[in-house]
Design a protein around this nucleic acid. Structure first.
Lengths: 350, 350
DNA sequence: CAGTTGAGTGCAAGCGCTTGCAAACTGGGG
DNA sequence: CCCCAGTTTGCAAGCGCTTGCACTCAACTG
């Protein structure tokens, strides 16, 4: 295996010079640098990451922890993070907590502690104080994405503003009876997100002079199936049939669209539906939504970590998150002006 | 930061003994072992992975390379691989090739070469000879999942058998005019998979004494949208309307179901549809399918790699794949006996 | 009872790189 | 021509762990 000595020998310099020439640290004469670069590429030499880590104390690797993998949002965040990390020359080591409980503790009490990562990115995770502490004790910067972690800088869109925007879009189309399918506070991973999104929905209504009707809200988990069931409930209620629905996620929204269709309602003819996410399936279903650019969130998180890793910034001093994350209303075919008179619901299917 | 010396001091032994006690290599008296374990846990000591790697030459880390992340199959494989790796005490470093072309080359020519991984798992990737060689030159075992790589042990279900099974299910329900929506050989990542799946479909028909009709095949990429479009084409053909469809993936199959509905056909009343995968959305859509257990494929791949990493097995001698991968027919609500007489197609929607 | 064996432990030499320090060299000013 | 400052390079001491070798000691063997 070719090592730094081989390169040094071939280039006719010391290993110290090779190291400096290749890493760009310290002074090296331009001609020497070229010689070294030539020798390295001739030998196909790539620095041994472990040896380098041991010597410098920096691994050029960050750990990304996710609750599980099979959710569009997480993978989108990871893709974004990875993209940026690669540009910085960093590796991404993935920890997936979807297994048993002891998988989680083993990640935090063993895997993350063996100093293989310089920093940790937690996606949609509520960390315990203990977990945060153990990472900080190691001097490893930590940032979260998509869910507030107490005492940790967290990147997250303004969940209130996002649903408010979605709801306002419906209001602007003349809708006045607007239902909401939101995260179930009891059953979701993150407590704040569903609450905030519901809050944004209510806020928009109140600003339009409409008092939110609790009967128009139905809880669900963030899946298509759950959105389907929730919509069935909301639309089956004969007393007050909404003319529009805002769902806390696109997957729920798509479920709701399918439910409406199964009930003989046309979207957007009889019912407008809007989601949050801009999920990869949203274009296919023609779903209006609010894009929250998860890939961008991943990229931003990495940039934050990189700043924290600069020697200038203190060990666990991740710079505060200042600039707000962007989100954009995307209007497709699932939202339209309120119908002049509501359609009747056929007998529920299935 | 507590190191091995601290533990040694506290336990009153040498660092060599600590190392042996904690790693389980070499002889250590039971009482000594306990003392060391106690000291280590008291100090919260976790061995420094980099130092250990440098000394042993083994990183306890494997690289997983995927073409991109946002596909159910890949994440399912990764989850399985991760689960098993964690049990072995290994980390998983993820490389995602979804970016530019130079991202791919940078992964293979730089990231994977810096000796941070002991082995590489390639998911649904066709590696070039050069890429395979450079990994072998490093003595890193390599296995593939979900797509044959020349000269590399690859785990993959029997794609012919899988579609054959799906087609036979339809045949057993009395269907005789069965369409196929398959991967587009021109546009897919892997050349073999779509061809094999189509082959299985044709094989089943021939064995039932039916000559496959090319007009009943329509190419598509592995997405819902593409399945939708393909189904529209196949079902819109008035000359020969199939009573059943086998799609090369669940996502395509779901797209096909939606297309059928939009055309006024009921599933399975007028049209049976079956897919391949057992995608997470399959239960929701009531889709009959063939489960290919991707998580299990990831686990198996890891087991193979671990065997190859045993000092007994030669460096790049991954054991041959012997046992076939399991797959199972799952019958839900999208397949039924052939209708006595075909329904008429309403005017196509959209 | 001396000799052999093997378990249990410690010493110290690495693993492949980085970097503080100092030496060697360069060029410009006095 | 000498001196100084700045640049370029090499020496060698680590980084935190593992492991071959050597040593001690107790248990056996003949």
């Amino acid at each position: 295996m070719t090592g730094i000595d081989d390169v040094a020998k071939l280039a006719g310099v010391s290993t110290a010079t090779v190291s400096r020439a290749l890493s760009g640290r310290g002074h090296v004469a331009p001609r020497t640098r070229e010689k070294v670069a030539a020798a390295a590429s001739q030998l196909g030499y790539v620095v041994n990451a472990d040896a380098s880590s041991l010597a410098t104390g920096r691994t050029r690797n960050v750990g990304v922890v996710v609750p599980f993998l099979n959710r569009w949002f997480y993978t989108a965040v990871i893709e974004g993070a990875q993209r940026r990390l690669m540009q910085y020359g960093y590796d991404l080591t993935l920890y997936n907590l979807s297994g048993h409980d002891d998988e989680r503790s083993s990640v935090f009490e063993h895997f993350l502690l063996r100093k293989r990562v310089d920093a940790v990115l937690a996606v949609s995770l509520e960390l315990t104080e203990q977990e945060v502490d153990s990472l900080h004790a190691l001097g490893r910067p930590l940032v979260g994405v998509g869910g507030p972690i107490p005492g940790v800088p967290t990147l997250s869109i303004d969940d209130v503003a996002v649903t408010k925007l979605a709801t306002e879009h419906l209001l602007s189309l003349g809708h006045r009876v607007i239902g909401h399918i939101g995260g179930d506070v009891e059953r979701e991973l993150s407590f704040h997100l569903p609450t905030n999104r519901r809050h944004g929905y209510e806020l928009a209504l109140r600003e339009a002079g409409i008092e939110p009707d609790p009967a128009l809200y139905y809880p669900a988990v963030f899946t298509m199936e759950s959105g389907y069931q929730a919509a069935k409930q909301l639309l089956g209620e004969p007393r007050i049939r909404p003319t529009a629905l805002v769902a806390a996620s696109d997957e729920m929204a798509i479920g709701a669209m399918l439910a409406a269709r199964d009930m003989g309602l046309s979207v957007p003819g009889d019912l407008s539906v809007i989601g949050i996410d801009n999920h990869e399936l949203a274009p296919f279903f023609g779903l209006s939504t609010v894009d929250q650019h998860p890939g961008l969130q991943g990229e931003r998180a990495v940039e934050l970590l990189m700043e924290a890793l600069q020697p200038s910034g203190g060990a666990d001093s991740v710079p505060a998150v200042d600039q707000p994350l962007p989100f954009d209303l995307i209007v497709r075919d699932s939202t339209a002006r309120v119908p002049l008179q509501p359609a009747a619901v056929e007998s529920a299917h299935g």
